[in-house]
Design a binder for these strands. Structure first.
Lengths: 199, 199, 199, 199
DNA sequence: AATGAATGAGGTTTCATTCAT
DNA sequence: GATGAATGAAACCTCATTCAT
């Protein structure tokens, strides 16, 4: 039920999605949805929180599973979990990240909270990397800004991927790691063996 | 008039912005807007196209002005132009990039066209870089994907900047170049002198 | 069950009282009420008829018990029974007399029937009085109109009493008798010893 | 417009009256009503206040015009104004006095305010009478209670009149004066020449 | 050429009422 | 026989859009 509602939200956006259409798609009458969720906004909240929790859980699990490995492997594992979620829950990703940029809206706060957690998780990983390298985060402009750029690059690749779905999830992940971990300079000067990208 | 309308759109979002409020803010009556633009959607289009053209013009001009210099300087100049636009036209940036992630909506096509142009401009620069380095773009996963990641990182940093406006525009630009040009690995191993970020 | 429903009706009015609230207060599920009464309207009817019967019974009994006495004593006894009912069954009185004035509504007919019976009982008493006095009812404008005025004065005093509950029931009854039996003129000219009113 | 709305309210009651029906009857579309009044409740308020003001104005004017005359003439004039209003504004009277008894409702306060003013006006007249007679109001149970009974008798006669519209307005007024001013006792003992009632 | 006032269509929400269990 | 869950119909209200002035 939440899943079908999410499909409509993903296709139409919050405002354009009508409760009539959602109810019809779910296969129940509107009052069923209202007794279950209370209001259209609450339904939207519920879907966002569900999708956000799934995404975060997957990323946290991936980062912890790979704890034994090297630090860039953990970043890679987190990114892979992110793109896997995008691949398997396209509606959830669409709704989550479409509302992110919306200015007004009553959900702004909740949605940003989810993104903040993703950024925070990334930042934790980066902080570990920085510490392990004996580096000073401040010299790099702060790890939060780095995490923001990292996540933004991932989102952008995810959106591009959804419109060019030929690539495999490992290759998209490789592209993200290539640019953010190795950097264009290293890639171009051949100073590093890039992650595979299937091309 | 387009500017005032954009201010409302930026604050409220497309759906929540009412033609009444726009007309009042502009200081004319609604029929004036309708004879000028035809519909609410057309008004939105017009604003988006205007802001998008401004942004693109600024980026193109910056990239061309720095044509004499080294190639990463041209990337840096484009990024600087982008963040300068963000700083000076917050409403325009907010509207442009808020609608970018929206799945549905009648503007998807037009709005993505603008973003596609930004990505295309970035890709042109990257292609030049690749060519100059005697590198093969395909080995890197395609320069379009790289451009997508580059632009996405920029957007994300821009949004973060808007909520943490302490940094100067040069420092935000430095952060973007650090992660996308040098990469985290090089930054951490001290193999490169990072761009300044004010920290 | 009827009593609890009546409490809700008295507090909220017919439309604002929801079957959900009634069922919860009664402590059963809605279908129980529907099998017992058939519809919300029927439940309302049932409550009104029950309350109306109680009131009429009390008034009739009082008037008959005092049959031996003088005629104004019987009027007084009926009025006392009315105010006693108001005092002891506030919910019933509230529902009975709130729907009385409603123009539309599907209950108009049934509810007015109850009021008509109260007026009719009063008229019977007045007719006896007129006959005993050898008077002609028509000269007074018809005893039904007199009964209407008598009852209306009683209702109005009852409502006022509910909001100013200090007076004892005998005193409220006295006030009604004073104005309707003796009249303002007699009261003012001291031509009659008024009923006690506690002041 | 207010008049037509009042006709619907009088026929159906507040809840059963739909804005669709009102708009159709008025001959405009619903948004016209909403821009004029804001909400259904506001429309209802407006009608009630308009009708209430008309009624009060008429009664006050009548009582003042007859200031030269004897005191019971002023009471009579006020009552005549009341019944004249009932006769000429049946919808207004119906709405005013049907909402009076409603328990809940958001209008309770406003409507009771109007009735309170009617009672207050009556009480003022009674106080003058009492003073002129050198009488003590408290001995009679307080003039407010007397005014309540007086007004209630009038309302009741008015409702009865609406269903038995044969009588002329002067005769209905006479009936009210007969019972409240002279009293049943005086009427029956022939101690006073009753007001004419047309029978 | 500009406007105040009007509209049609549609959206969310509620509630009396009824099936399967 | 009682219930939890479901429904259909309708109500209020809003807003982009357009006439008549």
């Amino acid at each position: 039920m939440l899943r079908e509602a999410g499909a409509i939200f993903a296709k139409r956006g919050f405002h354009a999605a009508s409760m009539d259409e959602i109810a019809e798609r779910v296969g129940v009458s509107k009052p069923v949805i209202y007794t279950a969720f209370g209001s259209k906004e609450a339904l939207y909240f519920a879907y966002i929180e569900s999708a956000g929790a799934d995404l975060l859980d997957a990323m946290v699990a991936a980062a912890q599973l790979s704890r034994a490995g090297q630090v860039q492997e953990r970043l890679h594992a987190g990114a892979l979990a992110f793109f896997t979620f995008v691949d398997e829950h396209r509606d959830g990703y669409a709704v989550l990240f479409s509302e992110l940029a919306a200015r007004g809206g009553p959900f702004r706060r909740e949605v940003s909270a989810i993104r903040r957690q993703i950024v925070a998780l990334t930042k934790v990983l980066l902080d570990e990397v920085v510490e392990e390298a004996g580096e000073d985060g401040a010299r790099l402009g702060g790890t939060e800004a780095l995490a923001q750029a990292f996540v933004g690059a991932g989102e952008s690749l995810a959106n591009w991927w959804l419109e060019n779905p030929d690539a495999r999830v490992e290759d998209i992940t490789g592209r993200l790691m290539n640019i953010t971990w190795l950097g264009l300079d290293a890639l171009l000067r051949g100073r590093a063996a890039p992650w595979p990208t299937g091309q």
